[in-house]
Design a protein around this nucleic acid. Structure first.
Length: 438
RNA sequence: UCCUCAGUAGCUCAAUGGUAGAGCAUGCGGCUGUUAACCGCAGGGUUGUAAGUUCGAGUCUUACCUGGGGAGCCA
């Protein structure tokens, strides 16, 4: 087959099809599905940017080529040449009248058929599942969210400072850490880049890191992965109120980017877009105390002083049509580096953001303790090894400064924006307690 | 880790303790406009593993394995 005609992507045809009307084009891709009707083969071609129907008519091509159209199997790689035609019956508005067709590689017994499958089967075939339209939409929205995350901070003068993956110690307890050999010593996979971002904030004023983090929690829920991506900004001379402003701007920015650039994908996922359009500043801000009152008013059993469980978060978030910021939790249930509220030292200057519709906590952060002696006392109280925090304490020795930041979990954010049930579909190759393959 | 549900054809599921079946997928045939196309025919099974109860077990019992849903913990 000679390819003198221009190669084109289906996405180009979808967006600008009229410009191609009547032209001969060459497409490369995979067979998504096929229907036949005697002297016609309707080939659904997928090229990674979209799908388009290619119509192979017996009268238009040599007999062996028509026979190839009869023989071609799902997910075989193919090359198609043909004329771009307008067609109202097509979802794209256009289809290809095939003049030349070649099977590049025949796919035999492709496991994922156009019928329903169970979760376990699909997860076992995750590497192939990514080819299907739903996974395609989710992955593209994830990519859009990550692009928005980077753009947001880059445009505001933040410096990207990569945190290490190997760490010598935990920043919040050791039971959830993955341990690995490090020559004659032990190392742990990072749970958070935050401590390093505090050093970065002292160096750059505004910094953020973005990368995978690891938690060896034996969690088996729709909100947990053992490997997940987190973006963690940290800002010098920023207090809790400013931190909440930043988190609010950030999440509103991400949602707007997806609404503007990934409408088609949201539609394919049947996402109720009006719920996302409601995500406008200002977000409600309530204290932990006020949140507990909501639970009480709903007649929900809750012990003051406890952290909120999944059900508690859902009840609270259902009171609002956009993400809610809950601040000033009891210090006792928060990490050692959180600064206590000067007005009530029993409370911590922290903030969590709970996504709407029961998607749970997507942001955790707050203002950090900047007094060396208070921090030393906290480390002792939490029974953490002081020696491991030597460099971290240096940040309070050499020009200590008030500072705040937060971490946003990418997969939970993707799940919420896409409106999908489980975070396992929000990352190309999820790592779960019971799953390491593919 | 705990609670709970499930495991039968490649996939999704049926089958009063009594001959293991359907749809899809696959193969062959039919159809000039199909939209998860449709119609006809065919092949396809150590019922998760091991033991037990029974004249007889896919079905009942026990243990184990694997997976789903939920909890706690968290992002």
């Amino acid at each position: 087959m000679t390819t003198t005609t221009p190669n084109v992507y289906i996405e180009d045809l979808a967006q600008n099809g009229t410009a191609y009307l009547g032209q001969d084009v060459t497409l490369h891709g995979w067979l998504y599905n096929k229907r036949s009707s005697g002297k016609l083969h309707f080939l659904q071609l997928r090229d990674g940017t979209g799908t388009i129907q290619c119509v192979l008519f017996k009268g238009d091509v040599p007999p062996e080529m028509f026979e190839a159209g009869n023989r071609v199997t799902q997910e075989s790689s193919v090359r198609v040449r043909g004329t771009v035609k307008e067609d109202k019956r097509s979802t794209l508005g256009f289809e290809i009248g095939v003049t030349d067709f070649e099977i590049l590689h025949e796919s035999v017994d492709y496991p994922i058929t156009p019928k329903e499958h169970g979760v376990a089967f699909l997860m076992d075939h995750r590497h192939l599942w990514l080819r299907s339209s739903r996974q395609h939409a989710i992955t593209r929205i994830r990519a859009e969210i990550i692009r928005a995350i980077r753009t947001f901070f880059d445009e505001r003068g933040f410096t990207l400072v990569d945190a290490p993956i190997f760490t010598p110690n935990a920043c919040e307890g050791t039971t959830n850490l993955f341990e690995t050999d490090y020559f004659d010593d032990k190392a742990y996979l990072t749970q958070s880049g935050q401590l390093y971002m505090e050093a970065a904030a002292a160096a750059f004023g505004k910094a953020y890191c973005f990368g995978p983090t690891f938690r060896a929690e034996k969690s088996k829920t729709r909100r947990h992965l053992t490997e997940f991506w987190m973006v963690e900004p940290e800002v010098a001379f920023l207090d809790l109120a400013g931190d909440m402003d930043l988190a609010e701007d950030f999440v509103a920015f991400i949602v707007r980017a997806v609404l503007e650039n990934r409408r088609a994908e949201l539609t394919l996922l049947e996402r109720d877009v009006s719920k996302l359009e409601a995500v406008q500043k200002p977000f409600p801000r309530i204290t932990y105390d006020e949140a507990t009152k909501i639970l009480k008013q709903e007649g929900h059993a809750f012990e003051y002083g406890d952290d909120f469980g999944a059900e508690d978060e859902t009840i609270i978030s259902n009171h609002f049509d956009r993400p809610v910021l809950i601040h000033r939790y009891p210090s006792a249930i928060k990490a050692f580096y959180m600064k206590p509220d000067p007005e009530n030292p029993e409370l911590s200057l922290n903030v969590d953001m709970i996504a709407p519709e029961g998607y749970g906590e997507i942001i955790g952060g707050g203002q950090r303790e900047d007094d060396l002696n208070v921090l030393l006392k906290k480390i002792k109280e939490h029974e953490l090894p002081e020696t491991a925090f030597g460099w971290y304490l240096d940040l309070r020795r050499y020009g200590s400064f008030p500072h705040s930041g937060f971490g946003l979990g990418v997969e939970r954010t993707v799940a919420w924006i896409c409106g999908i049930h489980h975070v396992r579909e929000t990352i190309p190759f999820p790592r779960l307690m019971e799953r390491l393959t593919p």
